[in-house]
Every structure is written in structure tokens, then in C-alpha cells.
Write a protein that binds this DNA or RNA. Structure first.
Length: 390
DNA sequence: GATCCACGGGAATACACGGATG
DNA sequence: CATCCGTGTATTCCCGTGGATC
């Protein structure tokens, strides 16, 4: 370390409290490679996947449970670990004395939020199967389908595909995924992940349920996260417990609230999270709350519209019309398009329309738009994304 | 030239209300 | 009084178009 680095380091640690080393630690959409507190369900998953460890493709599976129960956390960690281990085991199988050459099962994890069409879904699978990148444009859906047929011809390789976040307003229901993979039945099994109860998904497969976290388990998760990404004295244990209590078993909401609180404290230059900072963090997470991942998966322009919406003052937000008018000014989309986008966002639950009680005015009463996602986290991530300190 | 998909833009429909009509 | 109608606003629906990419 040279002198300059020493000085810079002093400046950082002495002048700014540096509450946050790494926002990812409290980012609800970023998962840990070693998730905690889900031992029993993890065992159930492994039980189901057991045949795969002998090269035999397991059956389809449905994983379900409410938001913030660790479904994505576990599935992403599990699939990346399995992928890694499958890569290593190849050599072991080659040297084995078994007569038949059992190809190891391959693993592909897909987020349905980024695969909302047949094309995108085929593409995601194919991308996981072949070395060279698959183009996003310029070839037809049917062309992709026949390429998949080729890769997944019976007798060759077998694949277990996890498709996360099914059954949301923007994503395929489980039944569609079942249909889409039906032609590849012999070589592909899927693990569908969603929130609906198995009785509501119209596909009968074995299911594994993720129950909400118990209070102490959630506290453990938050404590681990906080200790990896925040300054040691950023939060008291009591504050962590308070957030866990408030979040009622939902790790997503708890992390979003912590994220907001820590950011508020940082911007205000506080040495630790004050009670008011913590309250502000929780207030920026509406109840009920749409998961941040859904919002971040929206197209660029939609996120831009949402971001502007958050900056409007109360009277501009009093009607969809006036909100669209204000937003259209700063967004380079026509007012009609902004209007339509605002209605679509409300329809899918990302915002909520609250109809004004008619007070003598003419015509149908307008409705106010209320965000239903973690607003503070969204703002911060939006700013980080484009590298501004805003 | 082909392809996907986000946008644009406007038409069609729904809703609220007051006043007219039967 | 019950119903219809006109007007004004909000909301939904639909489909062609064009940018980006291969």
C-alpha cells in the first residue's frame, strides 16, 4: 500500500462513516451462494433430485410458497452448485468401470421474468445447452424450436430446467411451461417455481412447499447479511429484530426495509441507523409489496416512467392523466404511451389505483397512483445503475 | 431480408352525473 | 319515481410500425 492509498483510506474511514460496504448484502434481489435457514426444504428438494446424482433424470416438480421465503435463493444456489459439480463429475464418469456411459444430468436455471415468450424461453434453454451464444434477433421461433429438438434428441443428453417466478402477471403460468416442454419429455424435466397453491396450477406434479420464515430464522438471515455488507455498528441487534418482526416472515420485505434504512442513514451522514431512519426504511416498503425483481425486470422505459412517478408531487399524482402529462415531459415518450404504460403497471399490481370519491366534479372521477414496490431501494438501484449519485 | 418486441396512437368501451323523458 | 340520454372523463383494447439485431 502506497502513501496515497493510505491517505485515501484514512479519508474514507475517518470522514465518512461508510455504513455500507456492499449494497448487495441487503439487496433483496441478490442471493447468497450459501443460503441459511432452509435446511428441511432443501432436503426435500434433494430427495426429489436424488436420481439425477446417478445420471437418471428425475420427474417434474413444483416448488411453491409466498414471496420472500427463499425459493429463488435456494434454487439459484442449488442450480449453480449442481452445474459446477456436474462439470467436475464428467471426468469421474469417464474413468468409471460401468459398461454404459451415463451422461450426467445437466442443469439450467431460467428466470421466467426474462423469458416471457416462447422465443425467449427456447432461447434461454438453448443458451444453456450450447457453447456459442444464441442470437436474440434475426431467427424465428420455429427455427429455435427445431434447434432444440436437435440438441435434445432422445438418447443423448438429459436436462433439468428450473423456471422461476411462474404465474406472475407478466410471466407464464406453470401449465404453459408444462406444455412447452412436453415435446421434450424424454430428455427434459422441469422444476417450476411459483406462489400459487398446487391445487390452483392445473398441473399435477409432486410439490415442495416453502413456508414463511419463522421469526428467529429471519433474524439469523438478516444478521448474516448485515454482518457481511454493513459496518459493524450500523444496526443494533434489537433493530434487526424489529425489522424481522415487522416483515412477518418475508425476507424480501425485511431486506428492502433494511436497505432503505441504511441508505437513509448514509445520505444523512449518520454514524449508525437511527430509529427514524429505520422507520423511513420500513415506510418505503408498502404492504402488500410487489417484489423488487419484478420491477427491475421491466423494460427500460417502464422503469423510467416509474422512477419519474416517484418524483411527482402529490397533486400531479392525483390522476393518471396529470401524472402522464408530467412524466411525458421528461421521458421522450408520447403522453398517450405514458398513459397506457401507467394503466398497465397499475393493472399488474406494481402500482395501485385509488379512485377519488366523486366530489361534484364532472365525468368519471380520476384515480391516484400509489406505488406498491420498495420505492427507496428502487430509487437507489436506479441511480447506481446509471452511475449517478442521485 | 428476417425476426422479435416495445411503442405509438387512436378507437372502442366503461363509468359518473345531471337533466330530460315517460 | 324509474329510466334514458348526453356529456365529459377514465380505462381498456387492438394492431400496425419501426428500431435493433442477426
Amino acid at each position: 500500500m502506497n502513501l496515497r492509498e493510505r491517505i485515501v483510506r484514512r479519508q474514507r474511514t475517518d470522514r465518512e462513516p461508510r455504513l455500507v460496504h456492499d449494497y448487495d448484502a441487503v439487496n433483496p434481489t441478490v442471493h447468497q451462494s450459501e443460503p441459511t435457514g432452509r435446511g428441511p426444504v432443501l432436503e426435500q428438494l434433494l430427495d426429489h433430485l436424488d436420481p439425477a446424482f446417478d445420471g437418471v433424470l428425475p420427474g417434474n416438480l413444483y416448488v411453491w410458497g409466498p414471496k420472500g421465503t427463499g425459493k429463488s435463493a435456494i434454487l439459484t444456489a442449488l442450480f449453480s452448485q449442481l452445474t459446477e459439480m456436474a462439470g467436475h463429475s464428467q471426468s469421474a464418469i469417464l474413468t468409471s468401470t460401468r459398461a454404459e456411459t451415463t451422461q450426467p444430468v445437466e442443469y439450467i436455471y431460467i428466470d421466467a421474468r426474462t423469458a416471457q415468450t416462447d422465443f425467449a424461453l427456447y432461447r434461454a434453454v438453448l443458451d444453456g445447452l450450447v457453447e456459442k451464444p444464441v442470437p436474440k434477433h434475426g431467427l424465428g421461433t420455429s427455427e429455435l424450436h427445431s434447434q432444440l429438438r436437435q440438441e435434445l434428441a432422445p438418447g443423448d443428453r438429459t436436462v433439468l430446467v428450473a423456471v422461476d417466478h411462474l404465474g406472475e402477471p407478466e410471466t407464464y403460468p406453470l401449465a404453459d411451461v408444462d406444455d412447452i416442454f412436453a415435446p421434450f419429455e424424454q430428455t427434459v424435466s422441469w422444476v417450476g417455481v411459483g406462489r400459487d397453491r398446487p391445487t390452483d396450477v392445473e398441473v399435477s406434479v409432486p410439490a415442495v412447499r416453502f413456508p414463511p420464515y419463522r421469526h428467529h430464522a429471519l433474524v439469523d438471515i438478516l444478521t448474516t447479511r448485515v454482518s457481511t455488507g454493513l459496518a459493524r455498528h450500523a444496526l443494533t441487534h434489537e433493530q434487526v429484530r424489529e425489522v424481522a418482526e415487522w416483515a412477518d416472515g418475508d425476507a424480501h420485505d425485511a431486506l428492502a426495509a433494511l436497505f432503505g434504512a441504511v441508505d437513509v442513514a448514509t445520505v444523512a451522514g449518520h454514524g449508525s441507523v437511527s430509529p427514524a431512519d429505520l422507520d423511513e426504511g420500513m415506510e418505503a416498503v408498502p404492504q402488500p409489496c410487489v417484489s423488487l425483481g419484478r420491477v427491475l425486470a421491466l423494460s427500460e422505459n417502464r422503469r423510467r416512467v416509474l422512477r419519474r412517478l416517484l418524483d411527482l408531487d402529490a397533486d400531479e399524482r392525483e390522476s393518471v392523466g396529470s401524472a402522464a402529462d408530467s412524466i411525458a415531459r421528461s421521458v421522450d415518450l408520447s403522453e398517450t404511451t405514458v398513459t397506457r404504460i401507467l394503466y398497465e403497471l397499475a393493472d399488474s399490481g406494481i402500482t395501485r389505483r385509488v379512485t377519488a370519491e366523486a366530489v361534484g366534479g364532472k365525468g368519471r372521477p380520476p384515480s391516484r397512483l400509489v406505488p406498491q414496490f420498495p420505492t427507496h431501494v428502487f430509487k437507489r438501484l436506479y441511480a447506481l445503475e446509471r452511475g449517478s449519485g442521485e
